[in-house]
Amino acid sequence: MPWKNTDNKSEWVFRSREESLKRFLLFLAGLTVFLIASKFISDATMWPFVLDAPTQAMDFVTRMFPPDLAYTNRILPALWDTINLAVFGTVLAAVISVPIAVMAAQNTTPHRIVRGIALTIIVTSRSVNSLIWALIIVQVVGPGLFAGMLAIAVRGVGMISKLFYETIEEIDQEPIEAIKATGASKAQVFLYGYIPQLMPSFVGVSVYRWEINIRESTIIGIVGGGGIGFLLNSAINRLRWDQAIMVLITILITVFIAEWVSAKAREAVA
């Protein structure tokens, strides 16, 4: 207890002296790390460009107006592609995730080694951003929507499988015992014991991932993954900011709608 003893009189203080000193030193250490890091960033920065920023910003903001409304007829097809990208990427990821999650969950895995492999797949998929996945996949299948879809799927597998195998591990074992006790086969136990318990989480996770994938698919075109991101990139490269702003607004609206749909859908299955 932080009581201070002076002349036989006890006085309550918020922190003891040692505690305050410890906190101060910790703060000092943190500050030092921060300053060193800042110095490093500062050295890597071309300051004249930074100071030039207001001019640059003014330049492209003025170029944004008036927005090129006619660009909509390029945007809408690209938006359609983008949404398909997210939908199919999610479905593919969800389908692949089922066996991986079953292999990764402690209570359903056929073997420890299989579990290790499944966990490695999950970790690899999760740790690499979908943009980086797209970069790699574009090299194999060529640029375009298909590459983007695969990248979205490959990245999605990690998250869906992880959340899904955690649900499998937390499953209620009693109903499963009960169904085993009726003499049901393994497949039937899976059908009646596991699937009803897992379905809500599986649907919820997939819908949530779809929402994230909508965001991801709007930018995957920047590295050649097709969709609306490709338009954004090309508009910016051509300095057509009046078109870029149209794309940006479209992306914002799409993301808002996706968020709303996802929230409603997850409410419904909960």
Partner: peptide
């Protein structure tokens, strides 16, 4: 929240030039 990091990064790179400053 509605601006994806990558889009934000593109805008900042144009404003502040290439390098970690835009990233930060």
């Amino acid at each position: 929240r509605s601006l994806h990091v990558v889009i934000l990064a593109i805008l900042f790179v144009i404003m502040f030039g290439f390098g970690p400053f835009a990233g930060v």
